[in-house]
Design a protein around this nucleic acid. Structure first.
Lengths: 204, 204
DNA sequence: CTCCCTCGACCGAACGGTCGGTCAGTCAGG
DNA sequence: CCTGACTGACCGACCGTTCGGTCGAGGGAG
């Protein structure tokens, strides 16, 4: 109990982490179908067979990496909702910033996540569907919190608001085709909050 | 000159149209990579070789079909901008409606268009990039028109507004993962216009 | 009208290449 | 010397593309 601190990192874990990181990179750069296992193996500095020691298939590797990433964002977002005694516009701002921060840093994730959910096995498609629903659920919580706090008019359709909000999040997180002028997270989050609260027409 | 009216439709044209329609369908359902030429051929009721009589490669077939579709939307959108003596909020509404109408009917297109631009040849990637830029250009025209008409405050960053607007368009056109409650085009377009003009907070 | 030749749209078996997945084997550590 | 992490040559399935060939319409000659 005294000797085995953390010095010798279990090689098992290290390799698995290396594979996951490489998979995120390669899947993020090329998308699911064009990414090859050989490429991932090379990027992880392991043999192709090693991938199959840790993961039973390309799909499992893919779902593994995505689920891990999504849980990270979702956790962060949920913690924003929990610590929510700020007034709603502040909350909206923080939420937006957390999301944008995350997706600027892990650009690959949003690329994959935004990507067409097409041409996958039924199982994978269902999985992606449920990820998306979970993400929508968190956003719905946010919006409903706004409703409860009297920020939104009660006759607004929640689903519609959620669609709009996530659309804005994705649009600013992605900029997938364009060059990045990232790290304007603050300004962009403010813009989104303002757009939602009072619009962007010249005069009120 | 008197006899050869249009009775015998040139079989050539008919087949090519059939292939294009089949390609739109299959690419739209599965995305670029998982779609196979065999599948497209089957859907078009032609032999696989026939595809190569009309198109020199899978990529060319793909770019052909997309370019045709995109030009259609772009043309419609531009015509909205041209006939623009309406006040700006009306214009915004019409523009949005046209876009949503189109993409509800041709759902495949927006799926492909929104899809990850990943794992393509450099040439195809560049092509997709330019399609996207063209679409952004049209939206920029719209926003700039709003600026000229004094609808937007002059110190708003145009690019930011365009990003937000296209994000909203895509979010409502897509609903890619969700069931469709389409044909609410009118209501959704109104929602977007209102969001932009005065926000959706409870009181002004 | 008929025979035959030409032509080009169309076909699908086959080819070459790629990729996910396998497995017999290696080797370091205990 | 056993165990288990790890390897990479290899396999079979699949896919884009090619190519030799079919078929039927058109048209010219008899």
């Amino acid at each position: 109990m005294t000797t085995n601190e953390q010095p010798l990192a279990l090689p098992e874990i290290e390799t698995k982490e290396r594979i996951l990181a490489a998979a995120l990179k390669v899947f993020g750069e090329k998308g699911y179908h064009p990414a090859t296992m050989a490429e991932i193996a090379e990027a992880a500095n392991v043999g192709k067979g090693t991938l199959y020691w840790y993961f039973s298939s390309k799909e499992e590797l893919f779902t593994g990496i995505i689920e891990q990433q999504i849980q990270t964002v979702n956790l962060e977002l949920r913690s924003v909702l929990e610590a929510a005694e700020q007034p709603f516009p502040e909350l909206l701002l923080t939420f937006t910033k957390v999301f944008l921060d995350y997706s600027y840093n892990k650009r690959q994730l949003s690329r994959i996540f935004m990507g067409t959910p097409l041409g996958f096995s039924d199982e994978l498609r269902a999985r992606m569907f449920s990820w998306h629903k979970e993400f929508l659920a968190i956003n719905t919580e946010l919006i409903q919190l706004g409703l409860k706090k009297g920020f939104f008019s009660p006759d607004l359709e929640v689903e519609r608001v959620v669609t709009a909000f996530t659309g804005l999040l994705f649009a600013f997180s992605g900029r997938q085709f364009m060059e990045e002028n990232g790290d304007q997270v603050e300004a962009e989050a403010v813009f989104i909050r303002d757009l939602i609260t009072h619009g962007i027409a010249h005069q009120a």
